[in-house]
């Protein structure tokens, strides 16, 4: 019997969950159930990590509604530098931190975000994704999501740390991820094993946070309907 890594085993499930006719939360839950079904011990490692992050309230100090969003200047998937201040001159910005192109939850989330791009544009706003990955993988991530939004590289998770969103993956999770087929070092051009807590901010043209979603449980993401709701108010 050839042993398949969890990453490979999840490929079909990821495609299936992406296409589900259900709210994003349900699609993500469906994937989480697949993970539990395929690899119970991996799911338990995830639960332990998430519990610890919840206990210390990781991400709690990230910018809140009403706070000014710290500015960034980061390269997009083609290497062009993109500044938040310049984006805001054109309208509100939906900024969403993702872990990377390898993460099935991120792929489902990015695909859902690509699905609402026309409505976001119609509201005069723009979506940008931020990951700690280098351009080879931000461009893969973008094309996999069939998105036209920019995917920015936050190398070494520096901007994520500024927003209090960087976490260091501890050894247990690192080994579980490596075994599952997700060795992120090559994607990030470092050996750091840091990742952002997935988070989404709707930033108004005035540069302040209009809505935010931060959850140290990376299986949960801001529902795209909530993003559209925040843009309409």
């Amino acid at each position: 019997m050839t042993t398949q890594s969890l990453a490979q085993a999840l490929e079909a499930a990821t495609q299936r969950c992406r296409q589900m006719d259900a709210p994003l939360t349900k699609r993500l839950n469906a994937l989480a159930n697949e993970v539990r079904h395929l690899d119970q011990s991996f799911a338990e490692v995830v639960d332990r990590m998430v519990n610890r992050l919840q206990q210390i309230e990781a991400g709690k100090s990230a910018p809140s509604v009403g706070d000014p969003m710290p500015l960034f200047v980061l390269p997009d998937e083609t290497g062009r530098l993109v500044g938040l201040a310049q984006l805001l001159e054109r309208g509100p910005v939906v900024m969403s931190f993702h872990r990377g192109h390898w993460c099935p939850y991120c792929r489902i989330s990015a695909h859902a975000l690509a699905g609402i791009e026309p409505e976001v544009r119609a509201a005069g706003a723009e979506i940008v994704l931020i990951t700690p990955e280098v351009q080879k993988f931000t461009s893969e991530f973008k094309s996999d999501a069939r998105a036209s939004f920019l995917v920015l590289t936050d190398l070494d998770s520096g901007y994520a740390l500024e927003l209090q969103l960087a976490i260091k993956i501890e050894d247990e999770k690192r080994l579980a991820m490596t075994r599952a087929g997700w060795d992120i070092s090559a994607f990030q051009d470092n050996e750091n094993w840091t990742l952002p807590i997935p988070a989404t901010f709707v930033v108004g043209s005035d540069g302040s946070v209009k809505a935010r979603f931060v959850d140290p449980d990376y299986r949960k993401r801001m529902d795209v309907d909530d993003i559209l709701g925040a843009l309409r108010t």
Binding site: P70, L71, F72, V73, L74, G83, L84, A85, D154, L155, D156, S157, G158, Y159, L161, E162, A166, K168, N190, E191, N192, W193, T194
Partner: peptide, 18 residues
Amino acid sequence: PALRQCYESSLSARALAR
């Protein structure tokens, strides 16, 4: 080393934005 690199990256990201 990881935390130091992340921190330095954060400082340079902020300096660049400014």
